Computed example of a mutant assay.
Amino acid sequence: MNHQASLIQRLQLPAFTASQIHVDVMRLDQLHPIVSGNKWFKLQKHLALASPGRPILTFGGAWSNHLVATAYAAKQAGFPAIGIIRGEQPSSPSATLTDAAAYGMQLEFVSREQYGQKENPTFLQQLTHRYPGAYIIPEGGGGIPGITGSQDILQLADTTAYTHICCAIGTGTTFLGLHRASTPQQTIIGVPVLKGFDTSSLSGPRTLFLPQYHFGGYGRHPQILLDFMNDFHRDTGIPTDIVYTGKLFYAIRESIRQHLFHAHSRLLIIHSGGLQGNRSLPPRKLDF
Rank of each mutant, 00 (worst) to 15 (best):
Q151H: 03
Y131A: 02
Q125E: 15
A95L: 15
T159M: 13
Y115S: 09
G146Q: 08
P80F: 03
G149S: 06
T98Y: 01
I144L: 14
P132V: 01
P138E: 02
S150E: 12
F123D: 07
I136R: 02
K75N: 15
Y135H: 15
T122D: 13
E119P: 00
P145Q: 04
S92W: 09
Q125G: 11
A81L: 00
G142S: 10
Y135L: 09
E88P: 03
S94C: 13
Y72G: 06
P145R: 01
G78W: 08
G116A: 13
L156M: 13
Q125N: 10
S150N: 14
D152N: 12
R86G: 01
N120Y: 02
L156A: 11
T160Y: 06
A71V: 10
I85G: 10
G83F: 01
A101H: 08
Q76S: 11
I147T: 07
Y103K: 07
K118I: 09
D152I: 05
E108P: 12
F79E: 06
F123N: 10
G87R: 04
I85K: 06
G78D: 03
L127P: 09
A134C: 15
A134K: 00
S150L: 10
Q126C: 02
E88Q: 10
A134N: 00
Y115C: 11
Y103C: 09
K75P: 10
Q89N: 06
A101Q: 14
S94P: 14
T159Q: 02
T128C: 05
E113F: 11
H129F: 00
R112G: 07
K118R: 14
V110K: 04
T148P: 00
V110E: 08
G133E: 01
S94H: 05
S111P: 14
Y103M: 07
K75S: 15
A157C: 11
I137D: 05
A73G: 04
A100W: 02
I137P: 12
R130Q: 15
G146F: 03
I144M: 11
R130T: 13
G146H: 01
Q117V: 05
A73R: 14
